[in-house]
């Protein structure tokens, strides 16, 4: 089963995404969480078996764009799928994240189906 890292400064949004992953019947085993990009990088170092990242864009300390950049410049993580999650209004930052190597995005509000569509190509 796949291990997913959710990076979002809202604990509630992390819970929502976790529940939506279950509801969408996506083959996810463990879910690990981080509150910003800095914590996300720490998680990746301590748990190298993470299969996919779902990351917010607008976060304090290290935002999603800088997080993508940091992950992609790490040779060990250059192929790790990264899906960005943002509000409709965050599209400019989201475009930067895609330019830096994020694989896709989901906009809030989202449905289990939209999450499933964004992730299905990356989770076996």
């Amino acid at each position: 089963m796949n291990k997913v890292l959710i990076v979002d400064d809202s604990a509630t949004m992390r819970k929502i995404i976790t529940r939506v992953l279950r509801q969408a019947e996506i083959p996810v085993g463990a879910v690990v969480e981080a509150g910003n990009g800095v914590e996300g990088l720490e998680r990746l170092r301590s748990e190298p078996d993470i299969d996919l990242i779902l990351s917010d864009v607008n976060m304090p300390e290290m935002n999603g764009v800088d997080f993508v950049k940091a992950v992609r410049t790490s040779h060990a993580k250059e192929a790790l799928p990264m899906i960005m999650v943002t509000t409709e209004g965050g599209e400019a930052m989201m475009k930067s994240a895609l330019d830096l190597g994020a694989n896709g995005y989901v906009t809030k509000p989202f449905t289990p189906e939209s999450i499933r569509r964004a992730l299905e190509a990356y989770l076996g």
Binding site: T87, G89, E91, K108, P109
Partner: peptide, 12 residues
């Protein structure tokens, strides 16, 4: 989150 999504919609 609710206020954020609503404002994001208006912005977009």
């Amino acid at each position: 989150e609710c206020a954020n999504m609503l404002t994001g919609w208006i912005k977009s």
